[in-house]
Design a binder for these strands. Structure first.
Lengths: 161, 161
DNA sequence: CCGTTTCACTTGACTGAGCAAGTGAATGGA
DNA sequence: TCCATTCACTTGCTCAGTCAAGTGAAACGG
């Protein structure tokens, strides 16, 4: 029984690779969230919403498009935007051209909150991720990330669509 | 105003590096959780607890040590172990040598659940992370992860301790 | 010894996320 | 033209996680 477990378990270099990556997966989002919460009372997810809206034409996107950008369920996004709306940072209204869609728009206050949170966030990303790496490593990291993402999408059981 | 935002924002290669890594940070944990939930009704966090206990002498660890392994707050761990205990996979009792500590032990059922969940999980880690990468890339990933982790620990504001 | 402090958790209140059921706007078929 | 269906969200329920307050066991100071 324990022998089965042993033979199935990761070992050696592969174990090291996975263990360090798993640790990054746990700590890095926590560190980023902590900085954003301190400086702008925002989660990384909420920041991502502001980011997407800030870069969109007229600071406006349909909820479903926004959900795609944020890789979020519609329900999660709906609640998050509701929170941002209650702070006056985002406003929602039905899409005039099709009442089923909802358009979310960044308000002036929202742009300000985004502009205020951005420098600290960018600085944190530099300090924690980009600056410790060499140019070659950053290039490698892009390729590694792309390969992992491709394997997730391919194996994501919705490959038949 | 927008000029400040623009000048602070990430651009070019750095933006690509961060964007792809951020996407991995979002999708990979979700993919791993999904597999573990399907196959063993476990979150990745709960699996980590079973893993740590299974490898420990007498399948037993103090809660505080376990929290360290799982990089978890004590309160999160306490609730998670309570869930595992209610399934009969873990048992808790005061440490005889110091009643303040609590010892968590993997039960027979827990070992079985762990042994059953492991092959699928290992297979998923291989498929999503290890197999798509070359040996050189895996080596790079270890070094990259270590550098990021070091920067988190150094900058984690508790550097003064 | 006995009260205070420190530890190592545990628990109550609250917040955020997922799932499934609900809602209101368009579309499609008879 | 009207009803059913699809679409794009929204919301009720439940659960996991956090923070802060609580608890019970050891250590410490006088």
């Amino acid at each position: 029984m324990t022998d089965d477990t042993e033979s199935a378990a990761l070992r050696g270099d592969d174990l090291q690779t996975w263990a360090t990556l798993a640790t990054v997966l746990e700590w890095l989002p926590a560190a980023l969230d902590a900085q954003l919460l301190r400086d702008g009372d925002l989660t990384h997810f909420e920041y991502g919403i502001l980011y997407a809206l800030a870069d969109a034409p007229e600071q406006t996107l349909r909820m479903s498009v926004l959900a795609g950008y944020a890789n979020s369920s519609l329900s999660r996004l709906s609640r998050a935007v509701a929170r941002l709306e209650s702070r006056g940072w985002v406003r929602r209204r039905p899409d005039p051209s099709d009442g089923r869609f909802t358009l979310a728009t960044l308000t002036k206050d929202g742009q300000e909150a985004y502009a205020q949170a951005t420098p600290g966030h960018v600085e944190t990303v530099h300090r924690l991720v980009l600056d410790p790496l060499t140019t070659a490593q950053k290039k490698q990291l892009r390729e590694i990330s792309r390969r992992i993402l491709r394997s997730i999408r391919d194996g994501g059981e919705w490959s038949a669509s």
